[in-house]
């Protein structure tokens, strides 16, 4: 089976691999590169657990072919904490008890990060819209919405 090279930046580090043509970015990240933070909840684009940030935009890694990401800047939840210090979103998810089984959490955090990067002071409606592609079966969403709003406030206080 034909292998093709892929090369991109993952959480700031250069990655280069030979993969089978047609491999999704999700499988390439998990099986080849070893970043298992994006989760495969559906492989259909309907759950958001595999969400990653590609060149600043939220994308579903299960529907993205790895070959189309050559040269891209990819970010995942595994790269969010810097120097062992949790990102404000991660901190807020902990403090708000916004994780239960945890399977949706990395995707939720990616979706929330893109929101806060562009909209530092989001309304509740903004948060709801930003999370609308991500399924959570445990929490009933409310703690997650609250966590994102808390993180936004923490962010804006830090900036001020």
């Amino acid at each position: 089976m034909a292998k093709v090279p892929v090369q991109f930046t993952l959480n700031g580090a250069e990655k280069a691999e030979f993969i089978e043509s047609g491999t999704t970015l999700l499988n390439a990240l998990r099986d080849k590169i070893g970043d298992t933070s994006p989760k495969g909840g559906c492989h259909q684009g309907t759950c958001g657990a595999c969400s990653v940030i590609i060149d600043g935009e939220l994308r579903l890694s299960c529907l993205t072919l790895a070959e189309t990401c050559n040269g891209a800047d990819i970010k995942t939840t595994a790269g969010l904490a810097e120097g062992g210090v949790l990102h404000p979103l991660q901190r807020a998810f902990l403090d708000a008890f916004a994780t239960q089984c945890g399977f949706c959490t990395p995707g939720m955090i990616m979706a929330a990060k893109v929101l806060l990067d562009r909209t530092p002071n989001p309304s509740r409606e903004d948060v709801v819209e930003a999370l609308s592609g991500n399924i959570c079966r445990c929490t009933g969403y409310e703690p997650i919405i609250q966590a994102v709003l808390v993180a936004a406030r923490a962010n804006s206080q830090n900036a001020a």
Binding site: R59, L60, T64, S132, N134
Partner: peptide, 9 residues
Amino acid sequence: VGGPAIRNM
């Protein structure tokens, strides 16, 4: 159409 990630794709 879809959620934010789907709309980016």
